[in-house]
Nucleic acid binder design. Structure first.
Lengths: 190, 190
DNA sequence: GTCTATAATAGGATAGAC
DNA sequence: GTCTATCCTATTATAGAC
């Protein structure tokens, strides 16, 4: 049995790139095969359930990324302001300053939504809960924390859409900057 | 020559529905044929360029909708606050209270982006300019008006993404309400 | 303007050898 | 774990009759 050409983690990472760029329907096996360097047979060896398995793996990657780059920083020992700064810096990097899309958006569309809504929902809630927890720690009421957290995620996702529509990364970068000021303001007021 | 089964405007409207729901790649001729009640031959009679022509028609419908439901209300004779209220009410209806997606998002993805970026960009700018004009009329500086307009569109698009991801229309409805307060606040301060 | 039929291709998925 | 070959379906698009 031949050795794997790529470690499985690397396969998952490249899968993630294809799905975030082209969406569920646009992520054809031809593109996936090219991006990973793996033939169809190898792909089905890793993911016996085919494209659906791959999409679920992609959402798993997204959750892992969030856990490491959003949840963990928001629970670190640093000051509340510093934790927010770290999350925003990680978002900038993860979304390539606003030129990359978000799988939460892409896998919530069309028929993909029906198949993967559970996973998409869980992924967003992971993000929301981490923000809510931080805001409550800062003395904000639970209801208000939920509202602010939702608004933050709304702005990030919206900025990605508009930045793409205008081909202008500054829309994303500026939105994150305004978000930092808005979140800091809420926390200082609490 | 048989009479048309549907007026052309109605065909365009149904096309719009299919593309906004399934995206460019998900909008298969089978689905389009079903939604319009037209056979393939009739579709190619209306749109000789095939799917690309249809997608461009869809973006034309979007611009027409914006002109009527966003640009015109924002330039009406009513008070500034009333004009904003009207735009937001129209957005609620046009996006079915947050359960429908936006073609600006869907046609800016994957390979559709390469084909239709010009039209997508124009559509967003139509919206932005209408908002900027209103804000400048209220005494806000051009640079600031641009920032506020971008933030408004960012929030609407983001709210649609998150509302879909959570299957919760309230995310959209509440975001529009907060947007009204935010815009009114900016105007009152100017 | 619509119909039926069909071409031509691309898509997802599987079988069996090594 | 990877390869080559293959199957089947769905997809876009066209041709020609009415």
């Amino acid at each position: 049995m031949p050795a794997p050409l790529i470690p499985k983690d690397e396969v998952s990472a490249r899968l993630f790139g294809v799905f975030r760029t082209y969406g569920y329907e646009g992520a054809t096996l031809a593109r996936i095969s090219e991006a990973t360097g793996l033939g169809r047979a190898s792909l089905y060896h890793y993911f016996p359930g085919g494209k659906d398995d791959m999409a679920r793996e992609v959402l798993g990657v997204a959750r892992g990324w969030l856990a490491q780059n959003v949840v963990a920083p928001l629970q670190s020992a640093a000051s509340i302001h510093a934790r927010i700064k770290t999350m925003l810096a990680n978002l900038r990097e993860g979304y390539s300053d606003g030129s990359a899309s978000c799988v939460i958006n892409l896998l919530g569309l069309g028929e993909a939504d029906e198949k993967f809504h559970g996973d998409v929902n869980d992924t967003v809630e992971l993000w929301l809960h981490a923000l809510e927890r931080l805001l409550k720690e800062a003395g904000i009421t639970p209801a208000r924390a939920r509202r602010i957290a939702l608004d933050a995620v709304v702005r990030v996702e919206g900025a990605l859409v508009v930045a793409r529509a205008l081909h202008d990364k500054n829309v994303f970068l500026r939105t994150l900057y305004e978000l930092e000021r808005a979140l800091s303001g809420e926390i200082d007021r609490a």
